[in-house]
């Protein structure tokens, strides 16, 4: 094409369009304040970081200016110092013990709840047998069971793990059964008409189809484990994050109390994000 034709084509366009600059890109900040606007991952991350830093800043400001007594609200720097003291005094061992207790109870819950939940979703007899009992136990307040576990199992690891197990197992089994029930009927019927037996149907179709939702259920249950762990460690323990937290309170060491609470929060956040990451990797086919 010669430059002459280009020029003439340019001339034929309406004046407004001629040599018009490319339309200005909508600034990212407009997208994030638009109702159901398009995603802006970069800006969203910065917003999250900014909010986090703002809370931290406000906390430091209030504490450092003496607006609130340090006994009530220690400054972030005091908390960091407390962390230093705690870790120098073997805090990592306490963390290890707490994490160990949580995972022991969590795995024991999951290993029993997953098969039972799947069976419950599939066989009405099993639902009829188990559901009333599960619903009853589910509404028992877990802290109220602490004296019982102490009477039965003493103050060893057994009583704490049992307490966490009771707190999570009866919830998890119902979550798993629900995940299994949500698998489309067509998947099950497809399996059947391709010749799958009941056991292959549960293993090859049901379990695979429900897996992404089940991993989410497990992630949520793991969070509950931490709640009950602290209850157990405060009431009856001589080690663990909860025990250290309670001991610090007894001696009025607010920074250590804060450090303990934040430690649990960080562990929870990290494990939650780790499972979310694995979820994205394992179930890439969902995207």
């Amino acid at each position: 094409m010669s430059s002459a034709t280009v020029a003439s084509e340019e001339a034929r366009k309406p004046a407004a369009e001629r040599n018009a600059a490319p339309p200005a890109r909508r600034p990212a900040w407009r997208d994030v304040v638009t109702f159901r606007g398009p995603p802006q991952p970069g800006l969203e991350l910065w917003l999250s970081i900014a909010a986090f830093l703002a809370v931290l800043g406000a906390w430091a400001l209030v504490a450092e200016t003496g607006l609130v007594q340090p006994q009530i609200l220690p400054s972030p720097f005091a908390v960091v110092a407390a962390w230093g003291r705690l870790f120098a005094d073997g805090y990592i061992g306490d963390i290890g013990i707490s994490v160990g207790r949580v995972w022991a109870a969590f795995l024991a819950s999951a290993l029993i709840a997953i098969p039972l939940g799947i069976l419950m979703s599939g066989y009405r007899a099993i639902t009829a047998l188990l559901e009333p009992i599960i619903d009853f136990v589910r509404y028992l307040p877990v802290p109220a069971l602490v004296p019982l576990t102490l009477i039965w199992l003493g103050i060893g690891e057994g009583s704490k793990i049992t307490l966490l197990w009771i707190g999570t197992f009866f919830q998890l089994i119902l979550l798993v059964a629900d995940d299994a029930r949500r698998v489309p009927k067509e998947f099950i019927e497809t399996g059947r008409t391709l010749g799958a037996s009941d056991s292959s149907l549960m293993k090859d179709v049901l379990l695979r189809a429900m897996l992404p939702n089940m991993v989410d259920s497990l992630r949520i249950t793991l969070g509950w484990c931490w709640t009950y762990l602290i209850v157990a460690e405060i009431v009856a323990s001589s080690s663990g994050i909860g025990y250290e937290l309670w001991t610090a309170r007894r001696y009025g060491k607010s920074p250590e109390v804060f450090a303990g609470i934040l430690t649990i929060g960080i562990i929870g956040l990290v494990s939650d994000q780790a499972i979310r990451y694995l979820h994205r990797r394992w179930f890439r086919y969902l995207q």
């Binding site: 489309p184 067509e186 998947f187 019927e189 497809t190 008409t193 179709v205 695979r208 189809a209 897996l211 179930f283 086919y285 969902l286």
Partner: peptide
Amino acid sequence: MVFQSYSSFPW
């Protein structure tokens, strides 16, 4: 059996 809804396994 072939169903109306998509019954292929996504995994």
